[in-house]
Design a protein around this nucleic acid. Structure first.
Length: 250
DNA sequence: AACGTCGTCAACCGCCTGGCC
DNA sequence: GGGCCAGGCGGTTGACGACGT
């Protein structure tokens, strides 16, 4: 039995593991009152439990639509995928897994998947792919109707070297508005381009070599899980920008 | 057998949010 | 607008069993 410390004001409240009789009583009163007003249920039932405790017991253990048993491989795959996408939004993830609770998902991830995820992140870091987006200068100098879509792959050492020169503060990453191109088509398209990248990828803006602090001439870079993601994202908006209009504005 | 360590998971804690008055 | 309350949420704790030494 767990022995949590009790405070003077709730000394009369029971804590720790639930007894079978308590479960039965709670089920009876939730059936009568419905799944709300947990403080009322706690009082009316005579359970020496807080409303919060009753709610938690019901949601995590007693409600009839719960799936008991091990997380399946498919569920694990979903948890991994959604955690990569949403982070520690356990209740949001749990809503995608019928019969599973946020507590269950959280515990499972911490017990089974955290190590896997950390190892994967390490691996991904080594597989970082650098994508070079067009700069405003490109729009001024290119000829023809469309700018060629190109990207370059750099070896890990040069990427890491570049990363060392950038700010660790992620709030700086998308600050493009304090310069002459504020609200320019370039900035708009760059913003669109960035927002088009899926949630599970991390985007960083690298300053051009030798002018790291100048956000005008920058390289959006994302960390991708694998190279196949490159073909799936991002190449529709920025490269198709109408650079002639931009040229006129500038 | 005894002990230590580790993993699992139920339950609690504290903070936040939204609704109501 | 502000206070209060219920409920939601993510982080943390601690009991307990499994396993290793």
């Amino acid at each position: 039995m767990m022995a949590y410390k009790s405070t003077t004001q709730d000394e009369t409240l029971r804590k720790g593991a639930w007894l079978e009789e308590e479960d039965e009583l709670l089920v009876t009163f939730v059936t009568i009152f419905g799944q709300r007003r947990w403080d009322s249920i706690a009082k009316a039932s005579g359970l020496r439990r807080s409303g919060k405790s009753c709610r938690l017991r019901w949601l995590n253990y007693l409600r009839p639509d719960l799936k008991h048993g091990r997380i399946s491989a498919e569920e694990e795959r979903i948890i991994l995928h959604l955690h990569q996408r949403w982070g520690n939004k356990w209740s949001k993830i749990a809503r995608k897994l019928p019969g599973r609770t946020d507590n269950e998902v959280k515990n499972y991830w911490r017990s089974h998947l955290r190590k896997t995820t950390l190892a994967q992140e390490q691996e991904n870091l080594q597989k970082e792919i650098r994508i070079v987006a067009p700069t405003p200068q490109d729009f001024l100098t290119q000829e023809g109707d469309q700018i060629t879509k190109t990207w370059s792959f750099e070896d890990d050492s040069s990427v890491m070297e570049n990363k060392l020169g950038m700010s660790e503060d992620s709030t700086d990453i998308f600050t493009l508005s304090d310069n002459a191109f504020a609200s320019s088509p370039y900035e708009t398209h760059l913003t669109d381009w960035i927002s088009g990248i899926s949630d599970n990828q991390t985007v960083m803006i690298h300053g051009e070599e030798g002018s790291i602090l100048d956000p005008l001439f920058c390289y959006p870079t994302w960390i991708s899980e694998n190279e196949t993601d490159v073909s799936a994202h991002c190449f529709d908006s920025l490269w198709d920008v109408d650079y002639k209009n931009l040229k006129n504005e500038m």
